[in-house]
């Protein structure tokens, strides 16, 4: 006689929302790194400038922003050179943006592979966030290069222990981007309209995230609507990032904790929705 309860696993229509199977994700950790490796090896194959694109994008955007917002619109950036101010904002913003947009089409882009083999789907967006980290690292190095350049030209260098918060900030950015990306990617499987919304929405969000202006200016010039910018978690991310690496203000532990908490909540919501979608998306995509 066979025993009734010794099944290794069961495939049923619906599992509970919180059945996230993180143990399984851990078993597939090698896959995550192989995906990262694949992305790194293949992303700039057959381009002439190769990884230089990592540098060109933020540099040129910073130059344009400096011209438009600081020279023409005359937004003041305090003691910080406008170019450096913009470069810092853009570096942080583009990591978040890349995490969000690259993960938001996970299901659609990987339809082929997801339709053939099972592995915890969440590996895919996670690997994107990790491989974007590399790009972020390169851009951070560029930023440091310009920072040193400006320091030699006489800019006052203000480094503080707040730099220790940087890793937590980066984790928050990644989780925010990943969480939102997973929510969107799950909904895209049914409602394709969202694909159009994402590229457009991210663009709009940038203007509301204090990327090319300090939060203070909005508070002074548009006190009525400043709350939109102020309560946007990405504003906090960008401001904190600038405060940390440019030394423009102090950062409190509470601020970092608030960010981490928001990021974790968004990430968990994203994970639950993503997890629910991964079982049947192949029928609706």
């Amino acid at each position: 006689m066979m025993k009734k309860n010794d099944w290794l696993f069961e495939i049923t229509p619906k599992n509970s929302l919180l059945d996230l199977n993180l143990k399984e994700v851990w078993q597939y950790r090698d896959l995550l790194f192989l995906f990262v490796k694949r992305d790194v090896i293949t992303v700039y194959k057959q381009t002439i400038l190769g990884p230089l694109w990592y540098i060109i994008q933020p540099l040129f955007t910073s130059i344009i922003f400096t011209l438009v917002f600081n020279n023409i619109a005359e937004i003041s950036t305090g003691t910080i050179p406008p170019f450096l101010f913009n470069l810092a904002g853009i570096t942080a913003w583009s990591y978040f943006r890349d995490c969000l947009t690259n993960t938001s089409d996970t299901f659609k882009k990987n339809e082929n592979i997801f339709g053939k083999v099972y592995f915890p789907r969440v590996i895919m967006p996670m690997s994107i966030v990790v491989s974007n980290l590399l790009k972020f690292g390169i851009q951070l190095i560029i930023f440091i290069f310009f920072y040193i350049l400006y320091a030699f030209k006489g800019m006052e260098v203000q480094l503080s222990v707040d730099l220790l918060y940087l890793p937590f900030l980066i984790i928050s950015m990644g989780m925010l981007g990943l969480g939102l990306g997973m929510i969107i990617s799950s909904m895209v499987t049914k409602y394709r309209d969202l694909t159009f919304l994402v590229s457009f929405g991210v663009q709009l969000l940038m203007y509301l995230s204090a990327v090319m202006y300090p939060l203070e200016i909005v508070k002074v010039k548009m006190p009525k609507y400043a709350w939109i910018v102020e309560y946007n978690p990405m504003t906090t991310v960008i401001e904190t990032f600038r405060n940390i690496i440019l030394g423009t203000g102090s950062v409190s532990v509470m601020q970092i904790l608030y960010l981490l908490a928001t990021a974790v909540v968004v990430f968990l919501v994203g994970l639950v929705i993503f997890n629910k979608t991964e079982k049947t998306f192949i029928d609706t995509i």
Binding site: W7, L8, F9, I11, P13, V117, Y118
Partner: peptide, 12 residues
């Protein structure tokens, strides 16, 4: 790759 609508599969 996809889930069932009803029923189950048990595996050892």
């Amino acid at each position: 790759v996809t889930g069932p609508t009803t029923g189950s599969i048990k595996s050892k």
